[in-house]
Every structure is written in structure tokens, then in C-alpha cells.
Design a protein around this nucleic acid. Structure first.
Length: 580
RNA sequence: GCGGCUGUAGCUCAGCGGAUUAGAGCAUCGGUCUACGGAACCGAGGGUCGGGGGUUCGAAUCCCUCCAGCCGCACCA
């Protein structure tokens, strides 16, 4: 997973160890993997000896010796062979001291920037004139975390919220808008009652033959480019996008209206998709529809499965839009990487779209293109999370409820906060609770939404991490006199100090793992563990009352921990308040 | 029927290319208590890693198979 991206700096111990081990392993077999892991035996362990020994028909112990003979870890770590042939590596105290002091001066806390690439990340994607609900939570939160991580690593990120702003429902929506009158409709939409608007349109559509007919005509006008119809449609889009911006802001998500590029944006490119697929000899007419049959996909009957590009009614399917979007992103946005943060049920669709794009030559082989799939948000009954009456739950309601609970908890504890401060803080805690709960689960799995648990201040939660950070910051508020980080020397005499230090130097590994695997929970898990290391340290080691030079050393550890938590949380899109 | 995902402690979940004793949180029980923010810490109990085979010196992890659940499988995105 490493080595795919070139590092511009190399400061973290893992990288140093890996490169030293790698050259030793290369002496035996070039490219042999040392299999370097964090370990509680030493600081790290290299498990690659056994596999290498097997491949060379040697005894593992003998192989270990052979590698040790050429392994140069001077100034970095001590090594010892254990068990069948594990290399247990313990960083020298000089090297730890050196590394930690370098971190004190490093705003990036050891995380290297990568050679810049452009990544287009497709996420969130709500529908125009429809409420943002829990179904959009994961895409929005995971996508935004990935975008933040990528940016921090030096990538240029183009975010795309691929909103549903086209298709047959818009006939009915526009007619409903006309019925209400523009002013009334805009007022309704601007207060965020998108669902009410949609539902009312739907009801009329189902019960009123005349309305239904008008709606059909409206679709035709819309697709035909009738200016007045387009103007009305634009009102729906603009009001919705403005509303999404409010929700994004409430969630502290980085998406802006500029990132909201709906399906309609690609309309003009759809004909070319068809023409070019045809020219490439990929297009087949089947049952009146224009299709591509990518290899390896079959339907229920075992027959080839089509990707329908143009429907038998002449309309374009969403596959056409997705294909057009790929071309646009590769050709015009110059993407080196494409990510689609979309639910797991669509995995086959994306596999097919990617296969067709590759077959058509629109996706260079070197370009990373991935469906970042995720599981469902489940309710307490382990079914799709809905209200008791079976309705979808608005994101904004979810956030409001979380904020209320956080606020209630704060009332009991924080006496010195003004109501405004308390509300502001409660908002930050609520966002942290919801986002962290999502990001700390393996994204591929379904997870059970339990607000009670996720907003708790104890346990593996966002608020717990925020609290750890706030405790750290309070130390510096009570400091009184200034301290000089540059005077810090890390002797790490106490176990708790050393454990904390080991956690601190591993931050780059966690960021790297989250990015390489596109699994933000690798980072959240790291942060939780770091917070635990800190609280253990904090119990065992007095800071402010410690004698020098211990006091300065411990303050430096606290400083690094606070900054690591803050930076790590920020990469997940979670704020770290100074006080709680 | 085919394909995908999932099945680890009472509950919610980690376990990253197989590796030295399977972890955490919550809950339970027992400690710490003039406390640098106790919204904390320390400790205990609790698991035949869905079942069964296989490969291996070694498997929660790889392969096969079975069972259970969720999802997808031609014109809604």
C-alpha cells in the first residue's frame, strides 16, 4: 500500500524503518516485503522473514541472520529475532527524542505531502426538491473526510455533488410550482420544506388526470429547452441548492454550491456518448434500447447484461450521464483519480460503467477509478433507519436532536457558559457525535444508528475525543508562565510517556492507511487509541507540578497530543473546541 | 439461479498483505477519590472468531463447501 505515491519528505519512523529493512531484504530478493507492523513486542515488528525463508528454501532463523547481516538500523532502532523469525524492532531513545523534537516544529506532524494529483470525488448527491435525509449522511460524511484527507496530502480535489436535477418528476414539480405561484413556492422551498412540496406535487399527480397531463407536457417542454420552462426549473434547482448549502454548513461539510453539479450539466454530452460508443463498435440495439454489453455481467437467466445507454423511449439512462461525467472529469477536469462515494447497492452499476468507459478508451489504465461503497444506516430494529411512521429522517432533524441532547448535557456541567456559547458548543459536539459514529465504522458494513450511544461522552465517541483535546488545552490555559518547547528533551522514563510517544509518531501511518484504503475509520481508530494513551499518561504523570526537566517534556507531549488530535479530527471533518 | 457484502464477548464494533497470548467501547462486578477538568483512570469476569473441510510449522485472516442475513441482477436514478 506504500510506495504507490512518492513522498516529498520522509520524517516518520515507519518510513525510515521500512526503507532500511527494504534494502536489507532486497539483498536477498529484490522487492521482498518486510511486512512491517506496529507491535507491542517492541515498537514495530517485521514479519517478512518467514515468507522469504520459505521462498528460498531456508530455515527462517538462518534467513533472519542473513538479513541482519546487512541490516543497518544504526541510530534508529534495536532489533532482535524472536520466535520462528520475527524481527522485533525497538526505537532507540535517541531516535525517539529526535523524532519528537522534529514534530514539535512540524505543523504537519510528520505527515508528508505527496506529488500533487487531481482527484475528483463524487459524494453527497441529494435530489433537487427533495429533503436531505439519512440516506445521504454516509456519502456526505465519508466523502467529505476523504476530500479533506486528500487535500491535506497535497492533492487538488474537485468535489462533485451529483444531484438529481433532471428526469420525469420535474414535469410534476414545475407544474406544482406554477399552481402555487412562484413567490409562494419559493417561500415554501426556502424554509426547507422540500418534502412537503414534493409530496403535494406527487399527490396531485396521482389523483388529478389533468395535472398528470400537464406534467407530461412539461417534461417535454423541459427537455425541448423551452425557455420559460427552463426558468421555472432553474428556480427549483437554485432554491434546492441554496437549501443544501445550509445543510452542508450545518454539518460543517466543505461542499459549496460550486461543487453541486447536477445530472443536467451533462445533457449536452449525452449524444456524443452514444455516437462515440457506436463508433467504437460497442453499441448494440436490444429491445429497442441502445446498450453496451460489457464482458462478465449476466442477468438472472445467465444472459449478457446490458448497460442501457439510451432507453427505448429515446430518453437517456443514468448510465449515459455517468459515462459523460467520466469523460468530463478525465478530459476537462484532468482527473488523475476518480472516486464515487455511493452506496454499496450500486456496485454492479459502477463496475459496468467503469468497464464500458475502459472499453471505450475513456479511462486510461493508470487512472485510479473506484466506487467507494458503503453500507446502510440501520435503525434500532436493524432495518433501514426510518421514523416510527416509516418516513425517512431529515438530516437536519437528526442534527437538531443531537444538538438538543448535547445542550442538555452541557447545562448540567458547564455553569460558566452563556446560552449562546452553550448552543454553539452543543452544535460542535452534535456534529462530532454523528460524524464520528459514521466514520469509526468500517464503511462497507451497515451500522446501527444509536444517538444515545454516539453522543455519550464516554466510550469510543466523537465527544470523548473532543473532551480529551479540551482537557489538554486546559493545561495550557493554567500554565501561567510561558514554556519553551525547544527546551524539551524526551527521555520518556515512564511507561505511560513512552506509550504516548509511540502513539504520536504513528500519526502519519494512520493518515496514510486511511487514504490508501479509502477507509476513514483507520484514522478514527488511531485517534481514539491516542486519546486513551493520553488519558492513561495523564493519570500517571503529573504535568504542571512535575519538576524540570520533566515538566517541559510532559508539556511537549501534551502539546503534540493536542495538535495531533486536533489535526486528525479536522481531517475527519470534526472540530476540536478549546473547552467543553 | 448468478453476483456482491456481512456473520468475532450479553450489546456495538476493531483486528490493516497469515505470525509470537484474539482486542476496544458499552453493560456487569471490584478498586482509585482533597481531583494539573472524575465527562477520568486501574482491574476482573465474559469469545470452540456462523458450521465443516483444506493449505501451512502456524488461519478470525488464504482456498473449498454449507448455513443465516442484507443488497443487486434491462430501460427509476
Amino acid at each position: 500500500m506504500r510506495g504507490k505515491w512518492e513522498n516529498t519528505t520522509m520524517t516518520c519512523p515507519y518510513d525510515v524503518l521500512l526503507s532500511r529493512l527494504q534494502s536489507a531484504f532486497d539483498h536477498v530478493v529484490v522487492g521482498a516485503d518486510p511486512v512491517l507492523r506496529p507491535s507491542d513486542r517492541g515498537d514495530y515488528q517485521a514479519n517478512g522473514i518467514m515468507a522469504l525463508a520459505k521462498s528460498q528454501g531456508m530455515a527462517p532463523r538462518e534467513m533472519a541472520q542473513r538479513v541482519l547481516d546487512v541490516l543497518d538500523l544504526s541510530g534508529v532502532a534495536e532489533v532482535e529475532v524472536a520466535g520462528p523469525g520475527f524481527l522485533n524492532l525497538t526505537l532507540t531513545s535517541e531516535y525517539l527524542d529526535e523524532t519528537l523534537r522534529a514534530l514539535l516544529d512540524d505543523e504537519r506532524l510528520g505527515v508528508a505531502t505527496l506529488t500533487p494529483r487531481t482527484a475528483v470525488i463524487d459524494y453527497s448527491a441529494p435530489n433537487v426538491a427533495k429533503e436531505m435525509h439519512v440516506g445521504h449522511l454516509r456519502s456526505t460524511v465519508i466523502g467529505d473526510a476523504l476530500a479533506r484527507i486528500y487535500r491535506f496530502r497535497g492533492y487538488s480535489v474537485v468535489a462533485r455533488s451529483h444531484v438529481g436535477d433532471w428526469g420525469t418528476p420535474f414535469g410534476m414539480l414545475i407544474e406544482h410550482l406554477v399552481d402555487l405561484g412562484e413567490a409562494t413556492a419559493m417561500a415554501a422551498l426556502s424554509i426547507g420544506d422540500l418534502d412537503g412540496f414534493y409530496r403535494a406535487a406527487r399527490v396531485k399527480f396521482e389523483s388529478d388526470e389533468d395535472f398528470r397531463e400537464r406534467s407530461r407536457q412539461r417534461v417535454v417542454s423541459l427537455q425541448g429547452g423551452d425557455p420559460e420552462t427552463r426558468r421555472l426549473w432553474q428556480i427549483l434547482v437554485d432554491e434546492s441548492v441554496a437549501y443544501f448549502a445550509e445543510v452542508y454548513s450545518a454539518l460543517d461539510v466543505t461542499l459549496t454550491p460550486d461543487d453541486v453539479v447536477g445530472e443536467s450539466y451533462y445533457n449536452d454530452m449525452l449524444d456524443a456518448v452514444v455516437t462515440d460508443l457506436d463508433a467504437a463498435g460497442l453499441l448494440v440495439e436490444s429491445a429497442g434500447a441502445l446498450c453496451v454489453f460489457p464482458e462478465g455481467f449476466t442477468n438472472r437467466e445467465g444472459e449478457p447484461l446490458p448497460l442501457i445507454v439510451k432507453k427505448s423511449d429515446e430518453g437517456f439512462g443514468y448510465a449515459a450521464t455517468d459515462l459523460a461525467a467520466i469523460r468530463d472529469r478525465v478530459d476537462h477536469l484532468h482527473a488523475d483519480e476518480l472516486l464515487y462515494v455511493v452506496g454499496a447497492p450500486q456496485s454492479q452499476h459502477f463496475e459496468m460503467v467503469f468497464a464500458v468507459a475502459r472499453a471505450a478508451g475513456w479511462l486510461p489504465a493508470a487512472l485510479r477509478c473506484e466506487h467507494v461503497a458503503f453500507g446502510n444506516v440501520l435503525g434500532p430494529d436493524r432495518k433501514m433507519f426510518k421514523t416510527r411512521s416509516g418516513e425517512t429522517i431529515k438530516l437536519i432533524d437528526l442534527l437538531d436532536e443531537a444538538t438538543e441532547r448535547a445542550e442538555a448535557a452541557l447545562v448540567q456541567r458547564s455553569q460558566d457558559l452563556s446560552p449562546e456559547q452553550r448552543h454553539q458548543l452543543a452544535t460542535q459536539i452534535a456534529r462530532a457525535a454523528i460524524k464520528y459514529a459514521d466514520l469509526s465504522n468500517d464503511r462497507q458494513r451497515d451500522y446501527v444508528f444509536d444517538l444515545e450511544r454516539m453522543i455519550a461522552f464516554e466510550g469510543d465517541t466523537g465527544p470523548y475525543l473532543q473532551y480529551a483535546h479540551a482537557r489538554l488545552r486546559s493545561i495550557f490555559r493554567r500554565l501561567g508562565t510561558a514554556w519553551d518547547p525547544r527546551a524539551a528533551r524526551f527521555s520518556l522514563g515512564a511507561d505511560a510517556e513512552r506509550d504516548l510517544a509511540r502513539g504520536l509518531i504513528a500519526f502519519p501511518e494512520a493518515v496514510d492507511a486511511a487514504m490508501a484504503t479509502l477507509h476513514p475509520h483507520r484514522l478514527s481508530g488511531y485517534l481514539f487509541e491516542l486519546a486513551q494513551r493520553f488519558t492513561t499518561f495523564y493519570e500517571a504523570c503529573p504535568v504542571l507540578s512535575a519538576p524540570e526537566p520533566s515538566r517541559t517534556e510532559r508539556l511537549a507531549l501534551c502539546d503534540l497530543t493536542a495538535r495531533t488530535l486536533r489535526l486528525g479530527l479536522s481531517l475527519l471533518g470534526i472540530e476540536a473546541p478549546e473547552q467543553m
